[in-house]
Design a protein around this nucleic acid. Structure first.
Lengths: 211, 211, 211, 211
DNA sequence: TATGAATGAGTGTTCATTCAT
DNA sequence: TATGAATGAACACTCATTCAT
């Protein structure tokens, strides 16, 4: 995206690729320059340092995700339409797959025991809140059930999605799986687990695990 | 294994802590020495280099997990006993929480686009295979359904478990949650999603999301 | 010389300010451009490099000093007139204070053990020679006393003057001194030391230090 | 001073030499390592950064000067003994000449318009105060004359001394002067100017220091 | 078993200078 | 005359690893 000579954008893309390959700490500014096909000093002409590259990548991804979520008009009847749900998930996964390099870094940084992961946790939190807002008309979240809803949302919702984005390529390589098949399998599992569980009561199938 | 002066063991623990805080690439051998309270050169007396520390940590954790899984005699009637399932999961989580530093590094390295993550993927795979073996008497895995079973197992089973181990502390800090409460919430979600879905047919509750 | 848009002159002034703040080596071409409010590349349009800026500043200052000295018609009767001497010194100090940025750099460069300081020493030497010429009718400098005269002139004459120019602002700030008061104090000290000593014989007080 | 393998001390000496040649900003850590005959990284093993080298050099010099001044028992009758005064000055100059590299840097930094020169000004101030303390029994410094005494002490006392230390070598080279002769000339000028003026009243006003 | 000293190869970043327009 | 973009060559500082004892 961008003209062939848009070095500024190319640097950012190159940074994402390098970060995804070696992690932020393992990433070398020299390599970023090499990937982008520019002089190393040019990176510092456009960006103030290595960390700013990471920050900008995070922000761009956050905005893209929030934008997508906000554009969705989620309705109760969608719940009983596997097609609607699949379409929704597919849109989300495709958006994220374009940014899978950033997702990989997010997952790496999130696991660190450093204050830095607080910043990233806030990012994830924003997404969770946006999702809660999206399902507000369908799912009733009260003060009492909010905590456990968040746990479910995070560990069986958001994280599996991010994991799929980050690991589907390794999976495809390793098990010679085709993208479309793998994605269909994942979506089926995801709907059968997280969705089924989350919307059990709403869906009138109130006999799932809880209670 | 563990006298007060057992510098060799202390170095390994210190390495795990350092890796968990800064990632493998961000980790400093100086810091490991400092944490372990030993001279930096001593690390090289016991271990050949930084990477060997990582490898040994991975192997120890793998062995511990495989050992636990092999010790479990999983039976069909466990499926209908939430207590049995909870006990099983609790044992697993506690074992892993003791090694959460290593789990964090596993997650970090797994996200990298480097050949290194192949090695880690193999580790995860071993665990998955052990689990399949464990449920062999209960769950029928055929050549045709193996692929999708693996997808489910990985993305909605293993990964959420590892994520819980890696992130529960951040979660507790951030949302002022108590460990026992949080774990109960997680286990409930996990049983309600992954378990319910995986053992749906076996359990005679054949109306879950799939199909 | 000096319309509002005279970027060329503004660059030179900015360079002097930057050099005075950080020294020649500490000075940044970016900062000079910023101070001058021009594009960095424009500096290279007008001047060939950083060092030329320094050279031009030195030369301008030398010419100004030499011009002032040559304009003075020093006569024996001035020696007994504190007013005349004070006026002379005041003129010199004011001229130099306008160029105090350059004086600061001169002092910095003079202290370096590099060939560069030879160039600057020559500058100082020119001033010393001009001063000797100025006092030629009053003071008798012979082949035998020339060496010690020069030592006196340099260490108790020129250098204290340059030091006053360079340090009076720090002094004012640090000791909350008013400029006029401080200058009066300095001139009094200077007349009481260097002048009194140099013109001791001439002044009919023929029993001062030099034999 | 120190065994041949005392790298730590050699680094500091090398730093002083490098700083004196190129100024602090112009100094290259590589060059310091080269001069000291050690690996560059060793510098950082012993010292935390380039600036610490400068600080330590300043402190060592300050302590040496203060130590010398405090060891002097200055008495009124010394004023009329050129030998005593010369011996005193010689001791001071020799001490400083051993540290002339540091003195050069002090002069360079002192001329900068940066907050850093405040720190150095404080150093000089300490020396001035010690000198005032030294002459306390001989010279009467009151609240009213303190300010002008300080001006005299600084601009016609301390600074010419430091200048001599910093510039005598250039002078010797440039004018083919012998060290002992040059120093004698300087001391004579210094006694004839600064000393004569400062102790004029005490000395019966008229027959200044050198007989 | 243990350590203080030492080092080669980087590592992110800066900077004076040049180029294309 | 003026500028945004670009670069080669450093630069201070770091780091995993080794050595001598």
């Amino acid at each position: 995206m961008g003209g062939e000579t848009d070095n500024k954008a190319r640097i950012l893309e190159a940074a994402a690729a390098e970060f995804a390959e070696r992690g932020f700490d393992g990433a070398r500014v020299d390599s970023i320059a090499l990937r982008a096909g520019v002089n190393k000093a040019l990176i510092y002409y456009y960006y103030s340092n290595k960390e700013e590259l990471l920050d900008l990548l995070f922000l761009e991804t956050r905005d893209a995700v929030l934008g997508l979520i906000e554009s969705i008009h989620f309705r109760e009847r969608d719940l009983s339409s596997p097609e609607a749900l699949t379409a929704m998930l597919t849109a989300f996964l495709e958006l994220m797959e374009e940014r899978q390099n950033v997702v990989r870094v997010i997952l790496m940084e999130l696991s660190k025991r450093t204050p830095i992961n607080t910043r990233i946790f806030e990012l994830v939190e924003e997404v969770m809140n946006a999702m809660f807002a999206m399902t507000a008309g369908v799912l009733e979240i009260t003060a009492t059930n909010r905590a456990s809803h968040m746990v479910t949302e995070f560990f069986t919702g958001i994280m599996p999605l991010l994991n799929y984005v980050a690991y589907h390529e390794i999976w495809m390589e390793r098990y010679h799986a085709e993208e479309s098949v793998l994605r269909a399998q994942f979506i089926e599992s995801f709907l059968g687990t997280h969705f089924a569980y989350t919307f059990a009561e709403v869906n009138g199938k109130g006999d799932s695990a809880s209670e």
